[in-house]
């Protein structure tokens, strides 16, 4: 069958795995964006920069404190989430009464600042980060490096965990209620502003987590988030931000599509997601899982 497609199975499955990994990052990042958007009505343009900062946090924890990857996997997202909370309290929270576009502009400015500061400090070339799970297993039809398998599984667990937290727990019920009608929820005695702050912190921590996961396989550079975030925006537009599961499915699905494009028509691999976005917008403007608002 694979010979019929004119591609050796090694290459096909190799790209499929790469696609799954890219998809894992798309899913984690678009999930964070969706969680933030649902609560704050803000598109977090700083998301890419926060992903980059997560990778740098892992690198710095190893370099300056000697903390291994597995510690960084927990600590770095907490640090990045904390910076997010500071940003929300100091800046973002003052813009909620205005047009949502100002939130976008503010977070864009913040992204420039963060990226610029890291570029000033570390230069534009990449910093290496050692693979915490060397080796792999030969599956017969392909070679699966342990760490790459781990990324896919781990991000799946995190995504589904987030889904469970929001859709199946009491805290999540408060959150969904506050998204629908913040005044009413506040009248019931729930501290909505604090929930908003924590939601932003959580979404940003997800970006930081994705950054930590990316550190060992992509080189750690100040610009690693800037281009990725634009693709993630396209993913978000395709999926629509209406549902949590939707953004997970879209993220992984588009990663796989991109992987296959690399096999069959490499010239389009950079643009395929944008093309899909254009098509989806023509047929179903609200996105695959979204509701028009």
């Amino acid at each position: 069958m694979f010979e019929l497609l004119g591609v050796p199975p090694q290459a096909l499955f190799g790209q499929l795995l790469l696609g799954l990994i890219n998809g894992a990052f798309y899913a984690l990042l678009s999930l964070g964006l969706a969680v933030i958007f649902g609560m704050l009505n803000v598109i977090n343009f700083t998301h890419g920069a926060q992903y980059m900062m997560g990778a740098f946090a892992a690198w710095m924890l190893l370099q300056y404190a000697g903390l291994p990857f597995w510690v960084a996997l927990v600590v770095a997202p907490l640090i990045i989430g904390l910076t997010g909370i500071i940003v929300e309290r100091l800046l973002l929270s003052r813009l909620y009464h205005l047009d949502h576009l100002y939130g976008l502009l503010l977070t864009f400015g913040l992204a420039l600042i963060f990226e610029g500061l890291f570029r000033k400090q570390f230069g534009s070339s990449g910093l290496p980060y050692q693979n915490p799970l060397p080796g792999g297993v030969n599956l017969g039809f392909m070679f699966l490096p342990w760490y790459r398998g781990f990324i896919v599984m781990f991000s799946l667990v995190v995504c589904l965990g987030t889904w469970f937290l929001i859709e199946r727990t009491k805290l999540g019920a408060y959150l969904r209620a506050a998204t629908e009608n913040p005044q009413l929820v506040q009248a019931f005695g729930i501290n909505v502003p604090r929930m908003i702050t924590l939601t932003y912190g959580f979404g940003v921590a997800l970006a930081g987590l994705a950054g930590v996961l990316a550190a060992p396989i992509y080189s750690v550079t100040p610009v690693m988030g800037a281009n990725l975030i634009i693709v993630v925006f396209a993913v978000v537009v395709i999926g629509g931000m209406g549902s949590i599961l939707g953004s997970i499915v879209t993220g992984f699905g588009l990663g796989i599509v991109e992987g296959f494009t690399k096999v069959f028509y490499p010239e389009a691999s950079n643009t395929v997601i944008f093309i899909i976005m254009a098509i989806v917008l023509m047929i179903r403007p609200a996105g695959l899982f979204g509701t028009q608002r």
């Binding site: 949502h100 976008l104 944008f274 976005m277």
Partner: peptide
């Protein structure tokens, strides 16, 4: 034609993505 199918923040994201497509082209 593509971008005006969405409003507000989505419009910004769609135009950004389309521009990135032109960039890669």
């Amino acid at each position: 034609l593509i971008a005006i199918r969405r409003q507000g923040i989505y419009f910004a994201m769609v135009t950004l993505a389309l521009a990135q497509m032109v960039f890669f082209f």
